[in-house]
């Protein structure tokens, strides 16, 4: 398994190098999803980096714990990361007439706990920031706070709560993934509103403005993400119920 993963990693690295070669030194400006490079004032960019780092460290610790205790779960872990990778590459048209993409962090958050996703989600964001000029390095802290922290935590707690109330895992997964997706963009709107309060209406007016751009666009996408997450969940339940049981018995760190 490790041999396979290292081979996979080598392929990925080759791909990354090739992509880097293709895109280096091109002058055209491109726009990014989430908060774009340089579009947060330095103070706020630094603030969100500070918020982000402890979560990332806890995530790393929980990741090592899970993989040392149950090395067989590595493939499932990689698959959760890959799911985020796919979903955050899909820009889907929405009813507002603009496009956005899902986040895909709900699945991993429900399976492995939210802090693990703070690491996997950040890797996806880093890839997009460095190679696709999508998001940014200065805004990575802020974007990780929304997509890799707030979203997964919202998804995890929604899953736990709904499961307790309905004891229907499919409904719980669907709501968890959808809400996690939506919360990601609500947090993005809050971050932008904090950094750019409207001169007349202050934070609230700005929040409404950014929220109407991000959050409304995101509603149908959040539903799509919920449906896709249930799809993968169904496959896992059919073909890999054993590892799901192992995960259930693991005491997932709640923070």
């Amino acid at each position: 398994m490790t041999k396979y993963l290292s081979k996979k990693f080598a392929t990925l690295l080759a791909m990354v190098c090739l992509s880097a070669y293709l895109v280096i030194g091109s002058p055209t400006p491109a726009y990014a999803m989430h908060i774009m490079e340089g579009y947060l004032p330095p103070v706020w960019a630094g603030f969100w980096w500070l918020v982000f780092i402890p979560f990332f460290l806890v995530g790393l610790r929980s990741l090592t714990k899970i993989t040392t205790a149950n090395p067989e779960l590595k493939l499932l872990l990689a698959m959760s990361g890959a799911f985020t990778f796919v979903l955050s590459a899909l820009k889907i048209p929405s009813v507002t007439g603009s496009c956005s993409h899902p986040t895909g962090t709900g699945l991993g958050a429900v399976l492995f706990g939210p802090s693990v996703m703070s690491v996997l989600g950040t890797m996806v964001l880093l890839f997009q920031a460095v190679l696709l000029a999508h998001g940014g390095l200065t805004t990575l802290g802020a974007n990780a706070c929304s997509m890799a922290i707030a979203g997964p935590f919202a998804a995890y707690w929604t899953y736990r709560g709904v499961l307790k109330m309905t004891s229907n895992p499919s409904v719980a997964i669907f709501l968890a993934a959808s809400l996690g997706d939506l919360i990601t963009y609500v947090v993005t709107s809050i971050q932008l509103a904090l950094a750019f309060p409207s001169p007349t209406g202050g934070f609230v007016a700005s929040f409404v403005k950014f929220g109407s751009i991000f959050a409304f666009t995101q509603v149908p996408l959040a539903i799509s993400e919920g449906l896709l997450t249930v799809l993968v969940w169904n496959w896992l339940k059919t073909y890999n119920s054993e590892e799901l049981k192992t995960l259930n018995s693991l005491k997932i760190q709640e923070l």
Partner: peptide, 26 residues
């Protein structure tokens, strides 16, 4: 993209805002 719209909204709220960093690779 909804992100481009957000960029326009930032310019609307703070017309003088200039991004202080841009992606090294585009």
């Amino acid at each position: 993209g909804s992100d481009n719209k957000a960029k326009d909204a930032i310019t609307e709220v703070q017309p003088n805002y200039k991004p202080w960093f841009s992606s090294p690779i585009v």
